[in-house]
């Protein structure tokens, strides 16, 4: 279980997260929805310990990770898999080496076993037989899949997705959405997805957290969000820019 309590974070004079509270249920897909640049990625980076809050606490399985030193934090991070926005595959390694990377780093499995797992994970994300290719030879969607394969290589309890479908065509977006849902179903992992895409969100989410001005203004099932009365949420769902409605 992941819980953020009163998390505040500022960059310079700009306060991005403002005493944010959020509880993410286990073994479900939670989508954090918000406008571009509203600090969604910042939340994700706090959860995995890449950023530390100015104030507030972040609990992973009831352990406050803001107080941990790097070694303890690394132990916690081993439960995580993260898919970065541009997949963040290492350019100098083949796709196979990329997927094998966490296994090589954190297990003592024999080479053959690692190879087997890599093949299995790549098959799981629908990319069989690309292990020998370099990341630069893959398309954007394929890179995302490979990144996901790397994220789930250690069978993590928690998988974080940073804008998984941004920059993909609608068909590929849909395929990735399916992949997220299937992966979650197979692994029973807790998934946190950052998105600003309404259609995708309603397709995959068990829960939706609505981020607005540094706070979660509403948390609930897709149904509850759809029926929300909050003006910003209504606007967001209807894809309306403020100016169009608020005109004279």
């Amino acid at each position: 279980m992941i819980r953020l309590a009163g998390v505040t974070k500022s960059f310079g004079s700009q306060r991005v997260l403002n005493a944010l509270d959020l509880e993410i249920p286990s073994e479900e897909i939670t989508v954090i929805l918000g406008r571009s640049g509203s600090g969604k990625s910042v939340i994700l980076k706090h959860i995995i310990g890449l950023m530390t809050p100015d104030s507030g606490k972040i609990y992973i399985n009831d352990k406050d990770i803001t107080r941990l030193n790097e070694r303890e934090l690394n132990e916690v991070r081993k439960q995580f898999g993260m898919l970065f926005q541009d997949a963040a595959l290492f350019d100098s390694m083949t796709v196979g080496e990329n997927v094998a990377f966490p296994l090589v780093e954190h297990t003592r499995l024999p080479k053959k076993e690692i190879q087997r797992i890599v093949e299995e994970k790549l098959r799981q994300v629908g990319l069989p037989g690309v292990a020998e290719k370099m990341p630069s030879e893959l398309s954007g969607g394929m890179r995302k899949r490979a990144g996901l394969a790397r994220a789930i290589a250690l069978d993590p309890k928690i998988i974080l997705f940073d804008e998984p479908i941004t920059g993909l065509d609608p068909i590929m977006s849909d395929a990735i959405d399916d992949l997220i849902v299937n992966t979650q179903r197979q692994t029973r992992a807790t998934c946190v997805v950052i998105s600003h895409d309404i259609a995708s969100t309603f397709k995959i989410a068990h829960n939706i957290a609505m981020l607005y001005e540094g706070q979660i203004i509403e948390f609930g099932s897709p149904e509850a969000i759809r029926n929300s009365s909050h003006p910003f949420i209504r606007q967001f769902i209807k894809r309306e820019a403020p100016g169009w409605n608020a005109g004279p």
């Binding site: 980076k45 995995i48 310990g49 890449l50 790097e70 690394n74 132990e75 991070r77 081993k78 995580f80 993260m82 970065f84 926005q85 541009d86 963040a88 595959l89 290492f90 350019d91 100098s92 990377f101 966490p102 780093e105 954190h106």
Partner: peptide
């Protein structure tokens, strides 16, 4: 250039995320 590219493409964050310093 190499490390810089890794920085701007979040690969350094990815290393942290995978518990590799």
């Amino acid at each position: 250039a190499e490390i810089g590219t890794m920085r701007v493409k979040e690969q350094i964050d990815a290393l942290y995320a995978m518990s590799v310093n």
